[in-house]
Design a protein around this nucleic acid. Structure first.
Length: 697
DNA sequence: GATCCTCGAGTTCT
DNA sequence: CTCGAGGATC
């Protein structure tokens, strides 16, 4: 049969042939034909479709690249949530996982499907009647972004499942990533064009997938590896995870060649070691391996804890370490004057990013690790993100390297530096005289949780303070558009926005205002207590030093009295200002006792800042009165603040750390150590929907 | 006096 | 998120 006899059949045959060659080339790395032969087939199909436009179908290989760039990505609700996995780092944690699985299944030995854990982006592909209709990112696990147009350009993603009788619905789960060699090629090209280079394959895959113009995505070599399925209708019945992967491979998806089926914890550890040894030689980046109970019936039996399946775990490789050299140890000055030593390092690529500095926390830490300028050090990214100096390579220490000393004078304002006995930190005594502290004070004042002045960030405050326009937060209210627009990189329009934001900030709650003042030991919580107790800023200012001293005495007296009563089992006396002890009172008294601080407050009020007095918290009874909650991870719909607000509205309390007194832990995606702790303490774990139900919403 | 619970403060990089 | 320290509790 030739094309002229039956163009429709010819086009179908060509498409099938091209998809098959794609599969051989992109998924198996084992092409059957030369590139020239492939191109010939492709051009033949293009010619045929040009002659018979009615034959063009969306799933034709000629249609991978759409034309019009999108404005933005749509939202996609996942039919089956895309969950995250629990992590294991140590052999004992893997053994514990295996033990829980064995106990859960009542088996002596369990078979696992083991595979590399790709360091890419989790994706869900939807096929309806064998045709690729939609691809979405994982997002928060429940809702992702529609990146169909970009995914269509990936030739490792079949646009149509091979003939026969395709399933009515198939969701393929997997990872989009960039092979290391393609990443290197991309960066070489970027360099040649004088454009920005990407830091690692994962970031470049993410950046490429989020291109609004699919034509750009098409020029980059992204690939896709399948590792599971979501919703499915009309697929064969699988009994094992490994069978399911075989099925995906038969349907022209790329699956990891390294996947294996192993038995027992010995099998898991052997797989971990094998992949670890091959890690550098693999074509893609991985950050661990994944173990899943192979029997699907077993997976179902084990089920889920909160958001993580009980039948699978990710076994991570240790944080990557790298050598670098300490160029200098600089000192940063914080809002409270705290001096923090920071190691400036020769740029080193570790854990996927280039690290140039790492905090050394305080002098004690510098001494413990004995870090000196010029030292060769081992750098790693602790936990997830924050770079740290793990240790010094003593053998490589240069002769004459001296112990680092905390400077005696502030590097910013030259005031003397002192260390309060029994405290680890050194502080600059310059107070608001110190430029660094002044800047930080203004930044803190404008921050989201304080007076919430939008557009007034670190950069702008730097300029304002350095140009002398602003010395204290009170000066913000004197700024006008003309003055601001005179600054560099500040257009009329954005200057107007900032001024408007400053005006708008005059009305804030008293709690926010007190917090914004930035008194030592007075964070959001303490500020709120003070606001509710005093009711107005004037009431707070009225208190003399003697009044505070009396209050402190009173506090200590009540504390002693209560200790006595407790020993006798008598009822306790209500304390003044619960949650605020002598130390904090002293700090507030010191702050308000200083003339310049009172002056700034007076100016703020004069310039129209009107803190709204706050009614003492009426302990409303709600659905969760008296219960305490801890939030961790990212919730699918609510932000943490929103969740906290709703809990408070029903009488519950939200705290930051998990303890025996915690009633519920609300866990979202990528929940961290708090989740672990909750499990260890046997505390009820809620997902967002459970929380909403509990709150009656 | 000891222990537990919370809050405050500081931090890196994209 | 983690550490350190203040406050409450026993």
């Amino acid at each position: 049969m030739s094309a002229s006899d039956d163009p429709r059949a010819a086009a179908a045959a060509l498409r099938e042939a091209i998809e098959h060659h794609n599969y051989r080339y992109y998924a198996l790395d084992a092409p059957l034909v030369s590139d020239a032969e492939y191109d010939a087939l492709f051009r033949e199909l293009q010619a045929l479709e040009a002659a018979h436009p009615e034959l063009v179908t969306p799933q034709s290989p000629t249609q991978r690249v759409g034309t019009a760039p999108q404005e933005q990505f749509g939202q996609v609700r996942h039919r089956v949530p895309m969950l995250s996995l629990g992590n294991a780092f140590e052999p004992e944690e893997v053994a514990a996982f295996d033990r829980r699985v064995r106990e859960g299944l009542g088996q002596d030995e369990v078979e696992y499907a083991a595979e590399p854990k790709f360091d890419g982006l989790a994706i869900n592909l939807t096929y309806v009647d064998g045709v690729f209709v939609q691809g979405a990112t994982r997002g928060d696990g429940y809702t992702g972004e529609d990146v169909t147009a970009n995914l269509r350009t990936l030739r490792a993603i079949p646009l149509a499942l091979p003939g026969g009788k395709p399933p009515a619905l198939l969701e393929v789960r997997g990872e989009v990533l960039m092979h290391k060699r393609d990443f290197d090629a991309l960066n070489a090209a970027q360099r040649a064009k004088g454009e920005r280079e990407y830091v690692n394959p994962r970031n470049s895959a993410a950046g490429t997938l989020r291109q609004l113009d699919p034509r750009i995505t098409a020029t980059r070599n992204l690939t896709f590896y399948a590792y599971g399925i979501g919703a499915a209708e009309g697929t064969p019945k699988f009994e094992r995870h490994s069978e399911l992967l075989d099925y995906l491979a038969q349907n022209r998806f790329r699956v990891a060649a390294e996947r294996d089926v192993v038995v027992g914890v010995e099998g898991l550890m052997a797989f971990y070691a094998t992949i670890g040894a091959k890690r550098a030689a693999l074509p893609y980046d991985i950050d661990g391996v994944v173990y899943k109970v192979n029997a699907l019936a077993g997976q179902e039996k084990l089920g889920f804890v909160a958001r993580a399946p009980r039948f699978a775990v990710a076994h991570k490789y240790p944080a990557e370490e790298a050598f670098s050299v300490v160029d200098a140890i600089e000192v940063q000055v914080g809002r409270t004057g705290a001096l923090t030593p920071v190691a400036r390092l020769k740029p080193v690529f570790v854990g996927g990013v280039t690290v140039t500095s790492a905090t050394l926390h305080n002098l004690d830490q510098v001494r413990v690790k004995d870090v000196r300028v010029g030292d060769t050090v081992v750098v790693r990214r602790a936990g997830d993100v924050i770079p740290e100096v793990a240790r010094v390579v003593i053998d490589k220490r240069l002769e004459g390297a001296v112990e680092w000393q905390m400077p005696e004078r502030c590097p910013v304002c030259d005031s003397s530096v002192e260390r309060i006995e029994s405290e680890a930190v050194f502080r600059c005594t310059g107070g608001l005289y110190c430029g660094a502290q002044r800047k930080q004070a203004v930044i803190h004042y404008a921050s989201r949780r304080a007076m919430d002045i939008e557009g007034l960030g670190e950069k702008l405050v730097d300029q304002l303070v350095e140009s002398g326009l602003v010395h204290t937060p009170a000066d913000l209210y004197k700024l006008d558009v003309a003055g601001l627009a005179a600054l560099e990189r500040m257009a009329e329009k954005s200057a107007a926005n900032v001024v408007a934001a400053i005006q708008e900030s005059r009305q804030r709650t008293l709690g926010r205002f007190i917090y914004a003042l930035g008194m030592h030991h007075v964070g959001e919580e303490v500020a709120k207590i003070l606001a509710q107790h005093f009711g107005s800023i004037e009431a707070l200012l009225e208190k003399s030093l003697a009044d505070w001293a009396a209050l402190i005495d009173e506090k200590e007296r009540v504390q002693k009295e209560n200790t006595r009563r407790r020993n006798r089992g008598e009822a306790l006396v209500d304390a003044v200002l619960p949650g605020i002890g002598p130390e904090i009172m002293q700090s507030v008294a010191n702050f308000l006792g200083q003339g310049h601080n009172r002056e700034v407050i007076r100016e703020l009020l004069e310039r129209g800042v009107k803190p709204e007095s706050m009614a003492p918290a009426v302990r409303k009874s709600g659905k969760v009165t008296g219960k305490s909650f801890v939030l961790t991870g990212t919730l699918p719909n609510l932000t943490r603040d929103e969740a906290a607000e709703r809990i408070a509205a029903e009488g519950g309390r939200v705290t930051g750390s998990v303890s025996k007194k915690t009633d519920y832990v609300v866990a979202g995606a990528d929940a961290g150590s708090k989740y672990e702790k909750a499990v260890a303490l046997g505390i009820a774990i809620l997902e967002e929907q459970d929380l909403l139900k509990l709150l009656g919403l």
